[in-house]
Design a protein around this nucleic acid. Structure first.
Lengths: 197, 197
DNA sequence: TTTTGTAAGTAAGTTTTACTCACCTTTTGT
DNA sequence: ACAAAAGGTGAGTAAAACTTACTTACAAAA
């Protein structure tokens, strides 16, 4: 079996980009296999040579997008020293990516979580890496006495991830622009210092 | 045209409860109309007498669940005086409801947001009420100098809602129990005082 | 009491769409 | 050179969502 590289079977590439393009204008459910094939200039049968089913195509496209996203996040955090600065880097890099790549954001935030198969996909494996990264930064911050010692790393990770997602959710759904800078510094401010007077 | 009450057409009730039950064991996509009809003891055709399509059935079932949830949240917040106490009431009531009613939680958090029609449904209208309630409490807290004056009500609302959802997401997806008390006080603690030492 | 109009419910289609399978064609390793 | 494997095709299948023409129950008006 030949390795599946980023450029190898032209058909595979065409199918994935065709699908990605279609996801820019409509939701997963209303995109048909016939449409994907026609748009890619291949036959329906070929799609099933490279993808188990329609959802597998979705997961693999997400996986590709997420790979780029994850390495961006890793680079940005590595460039920062303090725990808070690292967390702000994650928040802003995430919001920036979701803002710039709406297809990626819509797949990740709206289209995959509903089916069990997703949680066995390579895309979800990357999501786990991403959330583990946040948790590790938090743990490190506690160890270095930058964060309060009673902070629950799991809970804080969830609060940050939830904040990121919900902050851009409306913009992603209704295709509106997001002020990434304002939102990320706002989130970090709330999480760092709290809102109570 | 007769009014559609909570008990009126037996068929309608049977369809909705049948669907709700099925949602307890499998996801929306893999539930078929035939299955719903058989389980309810009615014919497939009847479903389309009361519901525009399969998704409309989903939205109406969510709407019913959400109505009860919303009034619980309203009651709990009305019983508190301070802004922080009201917010904690919202967080704990939400987590409690999601923990107890998994069908409701899974529909709301995983199954509806992917299709545009949802945002015109009566269910989404209630979600808007719910998030507006949070925002109003925040605004009130700022006005009463309980919260910092530079707090952005929209952003804080999103952070809280995101924190709620992400905190129970894993538990809802993988059907695990959630420590509602610990989670809600943890969230309120982070949002109130921050995590920075 | 009969009529009549409407809501409740049925049963047998139709159509769409994801998916399959048997078959060609091109490339590649030995 | 040639077998084997990968790339690609096109017609066909099955299942599931949705339609439509129909019947039955039932309440209020005449």
């Amino acid at each position: 079996m030949k390795p599946v590289s980023k450029t190898s079977p032209p058909g595979r590439i065409k199918i994935m980009t065709s699908f990605s393009t279609l996801m820019g204008t409509k939701d997963f459910q209303s995109i048909t296999i016939a449409e994907i094939a026609k748009n890619a200039g291949v036959t329906e049968g070929l799609i099933y040579k490279y993808f188990k089913d329609k959802k597998d195509l979705l997961y693999q496209v997400l996986c590709q997008h997420f790979a780029g996203f994850l390495s961006l996040v890793q680079d940005r955090t590595a460039a920062e020293n303090s725990c808070i600065a690292k967390l702000e880097a994650i928040v802003s890099a995430s919001l920036e990516s979701y803002n710039q790549n709406r297809v990626f954001a819509r797949i990740l935030l709206l289209e995959v979580r509903n089916s069990p198969a997703y949680f066995d996909s390579c895309a979800y494996a990357m999501v786990k890496k991403y959330s583990r990264l946040i948790r590790e930064i938090v743990c490190d911050g506690i160890a270095k006495k930058e964060l309060k010692p009673d902070t629950d790393p799991f809970l804080l990770q969830k609060v940050i991830l939830g904040a990121i997602e919900h902050t851009c959710l409306k913009q992603v759904i209704f295709d509106r622009e997001l002020d990434v800078q304002a939102a990320s510094s706002g989130i970090i401010n709330i999480v760092s210092y709290g809102v109570k007077k």
